[in-house]
Nucleic acid binder design. Sequence first.
DNA 1: GCACTTCCGCAGCGATCGATGCGGAAGAGG
DNA 2: CCTCTTCCGCATCGATCGCTGCGGAAGTGC
Lengths: 195, 195
Amino acid sequence: MTGRPRGFDTDEALERAMLVFWEHGYEGASLANLTHAMGISTTSMYAAFGNKEELFRKALARYSEGPGGYLDQALAEPTARDVAAAVLAGTIRSTTGATSPQGCLGVQGALTVSDSGQDVRDLLVTWRDNSYSRIRERFRRAVEDGDLPEGSDPGLLARYVTALAFGVAVQAASGVGRDELRAMTDAALRAWPPS
Amino acid sequence: MTGRPRGFDTDEALERAMLVFWEHGYEGASLANLTHAMGISTTSMYAAFGNKEELFRKALARYSEGPGGYLDQALAEPTARDVAAAVLAGTIRSTTGATSPQGCLGVQGALTVSDSGQDVRDLLVTWRDNSYSRIRERFRRAVEDGDLPEGSDPGLLARYVTALAFGVAVQAASGVGRDELRAMTDAALRAWPPS
DNA sequence: GCACTTCCGCAGCGATCGATGCGGAAGAGG
DNA sequence: CCTCTTCCGCATCGATCGCTGCGGAAGTGC
């Protein structure tokens, strides 16, 4: 038997949940907030997503492919400079959108947590480290290609780009505007690559 | 009449509370965590500090004068380059200490909050903006002094330094080591000032 | 020693946290 | 229409949240 079909759109509900987590963080978003925004009851949420932590994991995955999808495209840019520029431009666009929360879910989702939230904090630490590692590997390839000066440290350059990106995310979360951040990263990139 | 004197050291208790807020954030630190670390009962905490939010405000003030005190000294450096270098060095030292929590209280204390924590979030937004503004004013003076090239944008340079500092704070909170961050900021400063 | 003030441990406040059990409603297959 | 499966609104769970009233203990000034 097939049974009664679900009465709401799972993707739509997950999108709404992602936005709430993005704005309030994992622990700052209560189930009441989430289910209200998703338009479903707590029962339906548990049946469809498991529990709050699983919901967050799925929301983070959706974030990575949606608002955070610029990273994939940035890594495909032809030169290391273009990669750095695309990462920073994407970060600024995503963290200062007019129709979405300010800042980056991967940064502000769970930078600090209570004793019971350590798993989610670790998840985001891994998420940020994964972003760093992918950029570092891309720069390593750029060195091999002769695109970056011989002897360049891919790890150092990736730390630099991610530090700027995370710094942008913090400032965006504080309300700093898109144009001002863009002017700042433009200036930083004029001195690319740092040595 | 004088009455019975307080049975604990207020400064010591505030120091302990600051460390708990630093590690877990404002909302991630429960009263049970705080009072246990402070070694006092909730009653004593309320009598001495008012309530949780007031305790946080006092802890933040203590942080600004203690672990965050490097900013004052950095602004007194003779050149803009030295100011930038001292800000970044101080940030790294403070966010990667072996005996204190990783990261920066002003960043991770309340980057995102629940509905009831907006006041504390705004407090930290103001705290970060104040740091930015002081650096900007210092750079403005550096331009007047001829220490920075004519036409330099003090606001842009201050955004750059604070973005790096906040980026360092996020990475330190993720467990990135002191030496690696130091190498990164050293490289960034070799291209100072960005234009 | 006495009177008086303040401190602080205990117990518990109402509210909210994440998470569930129950049972009628709703839709699918025969 | 009937049966069976699934969905989901309602009520509520125990735990924890920030916070406070009570009252004995403790220390101070006379």
